[in-house]
Simulated scan of single mutants.
Amino acid sequence: MATRGPSYGFSREVKNKLKSKYDKSIEQDLRTWIAECTGLNLPEDLSFAECLKDGIVLCALMDYLDPGKLPKKLPHTKMLNPFRCMENIAGFLKAVKEFGVSTTSLFQTADLYDESNMSQVQVCLLSLVDMAKSKGITESDLGVYVAEKQNREWSQEQLRAGEGIIGLQAGSNKGASQSGMTPYGASRPAFEKKYSGKRDASE
């Protein structure tokens, strides 16, 4: 993969904005959670991206949360090159989506490998924590509990009964009148008319 040069102008502004969204405290919590799940050590002398960019740690994490979801040939652990690393990451992303993480929470392979959008990597991993907690696979102070979807079935009688009900947001047309309303497009007087045209004799 070609080395990216420095960014200028609008590209630089976008890059700096993405970096500003990155949370170092969340990174540390994610490091701890991943280490607890996988038993792998994420060295502190390496950046979070450097620990994850070959995809081996991510594949190990997914194999712990949902065994058998990764393709059999993954992860690549030997003769690593950019293509094999990105294939590991892509396999992780596919398994994460099947695990239940929404598409909007996923990151692009280049976001991690090129370290171009690590804040989105955090979003994806936090969503993965949420799903793992909701499935009872892991416990962590990270993320939130995702409630299971509940499908409700309504009978035809219940559906028909609701057709005659006017919702509160719809209001009511009972007693509706345009009396006293200013016609659309007409001007409104700047002052109120206080006199009928005849002056009081006492004035």
Results as ranks from 00 to 15, higher is better:
residue 83 F to V: 13
residue 66 D to W: 10
residue 61 L to T: 02
residue 79 M to L: 06
residue 62 M to N: 02
residue 67 P to V: 13
residue 79 M to T: 03
residue 85 C to M: 14
residue 87 E to P: 00
residue 62 M to E: 00
residue 77 T to E: 15
residue 89 I to K: 03
residue 64 Y to P: 00
residue 61 L to Q: 03
residue 93 L to K: 09
residue 72 K to C: 06
residue 98 E to P: 00
residue 99 F to P: 02
residue 98 E to W: 06
residue 59 C to Y: 04
residue 99 F to M: 15
residue 88 N to G: 10
residue 81 N to Y: 11
residue 99 F to N: 08
residue 87 E to H: 06
residue 93 L to D: 00
residue 96 V to F: 02
residue 83 F to S: 13
residue 60 A to V: 02
residue 84 R to E: 07
residue 88 N to I: 04
residue 72 K to V: 05
residue 58 L to D: 05
residue 74 L to V: 02
residue 74 L to R: 08
residue 94 K to F: 03
residue 98 E to K: 12
residue 68 G to W: 06
residue 69 K to Y: 03
residue 100 G to I: 10
residue 94 K to E: 07
residue 74 L to Y: 11
residue 99 F to G: 11
residue 73 K to A: 12
residue 84 R to W: 06
residue 86 M to T: 10
residue 71 P to G: 04
residue 79 M to K: 06
residue 99 F to Y: 15
residue 83 F to T: 13
residue 58 L to E: 06
residue 65 L to F: 06
residue 94 K to Y: 02
residue 69 K to V: 08
residue 91 G to I: 03
residue 85 C to H: 13
residue 75 P to D: 05
residue 97 K to I: 08
residue 89 I to T: 03
residue 87 E to A: 15
residue 83 F to Q: 15
residue 75 P to K: 09
residue 98 E to F: 05
residue 87 E to L: 14
residue 83 F to G: 02
residue 94 K to M: 09
residue 94 K to D: 10
residue 62 M to H: 00
residue 88 N to L: 11
residue 88 N to A: 10
residue 92 F to T: 02
residue 60 A to Q: 12
residue 63 D to S: 12
residue 77 T to V: 14
residue 68 G to P: 05
